[in-house]
């Protein structure tokens, strides 16, 4: 592992993804905006599993809750669970080609979105539009981009 890649770089990239998460985008693009924070967390978990783990996922999840004004702890729960699975499978995932990795990322994002959906429905049953699930697909499509950019940052 690259020793030069410190915690500072990880925190900086996740702060940037948090900015992207709440960026003011017009109409339909806002509905497409994927969960950048989770994508970055997954990347760092796969790249540096001994340094980034469930604790980071939980902390950044709490911060995302504060950022987006959600029920306190819902992102923390979703992120911790997804990152736990990633940690368990990281050895195998690293060997996968990018398409297969993308499939795995798709299910990770789906799991996180499903948890958020359940929590929202427990709070007050509301009919969320079908476009609530769109970020799962755009997130999967954005994975190669996140992977390339963060890899460049890690090795730089």
């Amino acid at each position: 592992m690259n020793k030069a890649c410190g915690l500072g770089r990880i925190i900086l990239t996740i702060a940037l993804t948090m900015c992207l998460r709440v960026a003011p985008l017009p109409g339909i693009i806002a509905a497409l905006n994927p969960d950048w924070v989770l994508l970055a967390l997954i990347y760092w978990t796969l790249a540096l599993p001994e340094r980034v783990g469930i604790f980071h996922a939980w902390t950044f999840g709490l911060l995302t809750d504060v950022l987006t004004g959600r029920l306190f702890g819902q992102y923390a729960l979703a992120y911790s669970l997804v990152i736990y699975i990633c940690l368990k499978l990281h050895r195998r995932l690293r060997q996968f080609p990018i398409v297969q990795q993308g499939l795995f990322i798709f299910f990770c994002l789906l799991l996180s979105q499903l948890l958020l959906f359940w929590i929202k429905n427990i709070q007050h049953p509301s009919q969320l539009p079908l476009s609530f699930w769109l970020p799962v697909f755009t997130g999967t499509l954005c994975w190669p981009l996140v992977y390339t950019v963060l890899r460049f940052i890690r090795l730089a």
């Binding site: 003011p24 985008l25 004004g69």
Partner: peptide, 13 residues
């Protein structure tokens, strides 16, 4: 403050 907190709720900052 123009940020997009949650696309499905009418909450502004």
């Amino acid at each position: 403050i123009s940020i997009n907190m949650a696309p499905y709720e009418n909450i502004v900052l």
